[in-house]
C-alpha cells in the first residue's frame, strides 16, 4: 500500500499506522484502522467516502482535535498534538460565529495584530471572497454560500500552510456548490496552500483534487488513492473524467448507474 499512498513531492503531512476507536458503553468500534497517507506540500487532496467511514475522524485527528489510539501524524516532521493556527479547520456548520459580523469573524485569528494591519488583511480577504459591502453584516443575514465563503476567508486570513475542510459545501444547494468549487479552486491556485477536503460527493472530489483518497467503512480503511491528472477546468463530460469516476465508484463498491 505504501507506493500509492506516498505524495509526489516533498510530503507536508505524513500519516503512519493511524488507528482510532470509539467506545460507547461496553461496545468498542474501530473507526480508523491503520491509515497510511502522505500529502504533498501545496497539494489538494480529497478524502472521499460514505458517511460513517471515519473520514471526518481522520480530519479531526489531522487537525489535532482528537487523539489517536495508535500511529502518528507528522506535519513538517513535527508530531501533531493539538490544533495550531498554521493549520486551519473549516467546519460545515457552526464554524463562523453568529454573534460577530463578517469583519469580526474574519479577524478572529488576527486579534493580536495591530489594528491597521488587521483591517488591511480583512479588507483583502473580503475582496477575495467577493463580499465587499457585507463587512458589517451578521451571518444570519447571509446566504449559505456567503457564510461558507466567510469561513474560508477567516481561515485564509491567518495565511495557514494547510486548510482542512470537513464537507465545507455539504450544506449548500447544488448550484451554489458548483460555483463554490470554482471559487475554492481559484483561491487555492492563488494562495497555493495544502488542502485536505472531506466529501462524500464523487464529482466534488474529481473536480477539485490532485488526488482522491477513497475510504470504506467499518473499519475505516483507505480503499485506494486515485491521482487526478486532468487540467482545470475539468469537464465532467470528458471520457477521461468519466473513466476516473467509474474507478472511484468501483473503489467505493457502489454502482454508478441507477
Amino acid at each position: 500500500m505504501s507506493a500509492p499512498n506516498a505524495a509526489a513531492g516533498d510530503p507536508k503531512v505524513v500519516v503512519r499506522g493511524l488507528s482510532k476507536r470509539f467506545r460507547r458503553g461496553r461496545e468498542e468500534m474501530l473507526v480508523l484502522d491503520a491509515i497510511d497517507l502522505e500529502i504533498a506540500r501545496g497539494e489538494f487532496v480529497c478524502i472521499l467516502g460514505p458517511s460513517g467511514c471515519g473520514k471526518s475522524t481522520l480530519l479531526n485527528l489531522l487537525g489535532g482535535f482528537e487523539e489517536a489510539d495508535a500511529g502518528t501524524i507528522l506535519i513538517d516532521g513535527e508530531k501533531v498534538t493539538r490544533p495550531d493556527p498554521r493549520r486551519i479547520f473549516v467546519f460545515q456548520d457552526y464554524g463562523i460565529f453568529p454573534w460577530a459580523t463578517v469583519r469580526e469573524n474574519i479577524a478572529l485569528g488576527l486579534l493580536r495584530r495591530p489594528a491597521k494591519e488587521r483591517e488591511e488583511i480583512v479588507a483583502r480577504y473580503v475582496e477575495l471572497i467577493g463580499l465587499q459591502g457585507f463587512e458589517d453584516s451578521y451571518p444570519g443575514e447571509l446566504s449559505g454560500g456567503m457564510k461558507q465563503r466567510v469561513a474560508v476567508a477567516r481561515a485564509l486570513a491567518v495565511s495557514p500552510e494547510i486548510v482542512f475542510m470537513d464537507e465545507p459545501l455539504g450544506a449548500l444547494d447544488s448550484l451554489t456548490r458548483l460555483s463554490m468549487r470554482r471559487e475554492l479552486l481559484r483561491i487555492w491556485q492563488r494562495e497555493r496552500m495544502t488542502i485536505a477536503l472531506v466529501t462524500h460527493d464523487v464529482d466534488e472530489s474529481l473536480q477539485l483534487a490532485d488526488r482522491v483518497v477513497v475510504m470504506t467503512s467499518r473499519p475505516g480503511r483507505i480503499a485506494g488513492i486515485v491521482p487526478v491528472a486532468l487540467p482545470h477546468p475539468r469537464d465532467p463530460g470528458s471520457p477521461a473524467y468519466n473513466a476516473l469516476k467509474r474507478q472511484l465508484f468501483e473503489l467505493l463498491g457502489v454502482r454508478a448507474d441507477v
Binding site: G63, R82, P85, D93, F97, A100
Partner: peptide, 29 residues
C-alpha cells in the same frame, strides 16, 4: 455551546481570556 465554536477558537490560537471574551460569553449571551 456547539463544539465547533470552541474548536475554531483553539484552532486560531485564542488564549484563555480571548476565548472567554470572543467565544464563550457571546455564544452564551
Amino acid at each position: 455551546m456547539p463544539v465547533a465554536y470552541v474548536r475554531s477558537a483553539h484552532n486560531f490560537g485564542l488564549r484563555k481570556f480571548e476565548l472567554l471574551a470572543h467565544v464563550v460569553f457571546p455564544a452564551a449571551l
